[in-house]
């Protein structure tokens, strides 16, 4: 168990190092990053001064070590646009993104698992059809378009929810629905197929032979086993939501990381872009690690057999 955890931690550290390398070299993909960050029309002396100031004229390896050492110290560089440390900006925006992604995920989980278990237990029923439709639409309706349609209907026409910002407690509703819709579809599909599979397991027949009610079989026997299959998927969906909120945050002017990334990309503020990309990847890696740990704790078979 401890050895397993240790291996996973070391693996995650290597992944982080890899991400660091990728992020560092990405902005050098087209050669000198100066050309990315400074307008082409700028006079040569200005470009040279910028190059000097950013240290882009040093050998690549020195730049990389400097970059890595900075990150170890918590120095992610300064935003060109905001003229303040990238880390400050990120930490400022982080809670909003976490909040949005969490609400979206919870919404998706509650709806998807309920529909998935009830539908999967009664194939062909109305709820099952609803689940299948949700599963299909979740994968086929782009969330940025769904966001626009939701604004059109619920903000503009009905006026129930605000169409942008984070000023009231119900501001989160539309962005969360738009963001979580795809995950909901994915989770419904998975829950449904897990339930269909579990329904054929011998231990469900045993439960039926004991005369346990359909509801209790669903809530106790099916749910427990399905949730094992869902834990890892939910974690993947969460990292997807954290990293995927860029459209939604932009559309709803949600003051989160995705919005910041969009602004940084728009303003060619690449130090900030680098920092955000690294940070989001860091969260995703950490989340995966946590999931594996949680898995080892939840599943009695893993816990005892190691």
């Amino acid at each position: 168990m401890q050895r397993y955890l240790l291996t996973r931690v070391v693996q995650s550290l290597f992944l982080l190092l890899g991400v660091l390398i990728v992020v560092f070299f990405l902005v050098r993909l087209t050669g000198d990053p100066t050309s990315l960050m400074v307008a082409k029309e700028a006079p040569a002396e200005q470009r040279e001064a910028f190059r000097e100031a950013m240290g882009f004229n040093r050998p690549l390896i020195v730049q990389f070590l400097d970059f890595g050492a900075g990150i170890l110290r918590g120095d992610f560089g300064d935003s060109l646009h905001f003229r303040q440390p990238a880390l400050e900006l990120i930490l400022e925006r982080l809670p909003a993104t976490f909040y949005l992604a969490t609400v979206a995920l919870l919404l998706a989980i509650v709806i998807a698992i309920t529909i998935g278990i009830i539908g999967g237990s009664n194939p062909g029923s109305a709820i099952d059809s609803l689940g299948r439709a949700l599963g299909l639409f979740g994968q086929t309706i782009p969330n940025f378009w769904l966001a626009l349609i939701l604004i059109l209907i619920f903000a503009v026409n009905l006026g129930w929810f605000p169409s942008f910002g984070r000023d009231t407690s119900i501001s989160v509703v539309l962005p969360a629905v738009a963001l979580g819709f795809g995950s909901m579809g994915q989770l419904v599909r998975l829950t449904r197929s897990a339930v269909l599979e579990i329904r054929n397991e011998d231990y469900i027949r045993t439960a039926r032979s004991k005369g346990i009610s359909q509801f209790k079989i669903g809530a106790r026997h099916v749910f427990r086993n399905a949730s094992l299959a869902l834990v890892s998927v939910i974690s993947i969906q969460y990292s997807y939501l954290l990293g995927g909120s860029i459209y939604i945050e932009t559309i709803f002017s949600w003051p989160g990381l995705g919005n910041l990334l969009q602004q940084a990309v728009d303003g060619r503020d690449f130090p900030l872009v680098q920092a955000i990309a690294f940070f989001i990847s860091f969260f995703v890696i950490a989340l995966t690690l946590l999931t594996d740990v949680a898995y080892a704790l939840i599943d009695p078979r893993i816990r005892y057999s190691s």
Binding site: E201, D202, T206, A207, S209, H221, R224, N225, P300
Partner: peptide
């Protein structure tokens, strides 16, 4: 009821 395969007939998570 007693079933054939006691390995698969018991719920592994309970």
């Amino acid at each position: 009821f007693i079933f054939q395969d006691p390995i698969s007939s018991l719920n592994p998570t309970m």
